[in-house]
């Protein structure tokens, strides 16, 4: 069902999910949006696909938390100490704020990327006034991760079918990871060139106005979804104004 939503609705969602908490100015608001994103991703059955990305960013956020917890400028209240290293509450809360924001951004973008066909994405960008070429570049940026995963699987098959051990213990798998990097990059470069020719001979660069096989039609759900989003946005603006007036 989520897959059927107009990509534009999803773009509006990204917008609202990131602006509204900023307007409201409460961590709870950010957290709520993360929760909503998780619910939407679960309905769309793609939540598990966010795992690699979250793992990676989690690692970075942890580093941020440690650095801020120890060195943040406004640090005064001691939260806890690990041996001689003291962590401060202000720094940790600051890091929490960053983490929530980053995760919120990632999750809201994931909805667009993981539940939209690449071609629909190009189409939306084109409707938004981007040139098809730029639209294609944008959508292939979003495609990088699934693409790389596929290339990696192909190359792994090539390597193990010629006697390289890639299965079994974690150590073997880590050892098998490094010889993958350069062929994956090389392969991506080559396929980009070939892809470009393939697109070209099918009239991709044509100045002709394009038509689309799938009329991206707004559904009733789109209307409801957008209405709710706009409402949230308006409410949060009110909230902001109220705070100012006080």
């Amino acid at each position: 069902m989520i897959h059927k939503l107009d990509p534009n609705s999803k773009i509006i969602y990204i917008f609202v999910a990131n602006i509204a908490p900023a307007l409201i100015g409460a961590r709870m608001a950010t957290a709520s949006f993360i929760l909503i994103s998780i619910v939407i991703l679960t309905i769309g059955k793609v939540l598990h696909k966010t795992a690699p990305m979250l793992e990676f960013s989690g690692l970075i956020l942890l580093t941020v938390a440690i650095i801020q917890g120890i060195f943040h400028q406004g640090n005064t209240t001691v939260a806890f100490a690990l041996g001689s290293v003291v962590f401060y509450k202000e720094g940790l809360m600051f890091a929490l704020g960053i983490a929530l924001n980053v995760i919120n951004i990632l999750m809201s973008f994931s909805i667009l990327v993981l539940t939209t066909k690449p071609s629909d994405m190009v189409e939306t960008f084109v409707h938004m006034g981007l040139s098809p070429r730029l639209g294609y570049v944008m959508s292939s940026v979003f495609q990088i991760i699934p693409q790389m995963t596929k290339t990696m699987a192909t190359i792994t098959d090539a390597q193990r079918s010629r006697g390289m051990e890639t299965e079994g213990k974690l150590k073997t798998r880590i050892k098998a990871f490094f010889p993958l990097i350069s062929p994956v990059v090389m392969n991506s470069l080559i396929s980009t060139k070939e892809r470009a020719i393939a697109l070209e001979v099918r009239g991709f660069g044509s100045k002709q106005k394009k038509t689309f096989l799938n009329d991206l039609q707004k559904t009733r759900y789109d209307d409801i979804f957008r209405f709710v989003l706009i409402l949230i946005l308006i409410l949060s603006i009110f909230w902001r104004v109220l705070i100012w007036l006080k």
């Binding site: 098959d157 090539a158 193990r160 079918s161 010629r162 390289m164 051990e165 890639t166 299965e167």
Partner: peptide, 24 residues
């Protein structure tokens, strides 16, 4: 047996050489 172990006995030339070649 793992694929790598099987590879000592059975060699396969893939249908699409692009799927097999990965060195420069």
């Amino acid at each position: 047996m793992t694929v790598a172990q099987i590879a000592k006995h059975i060699g396969l030339v893939f249908q699409n050489p692009n799927d097999q070649i990965f060195k420069n």
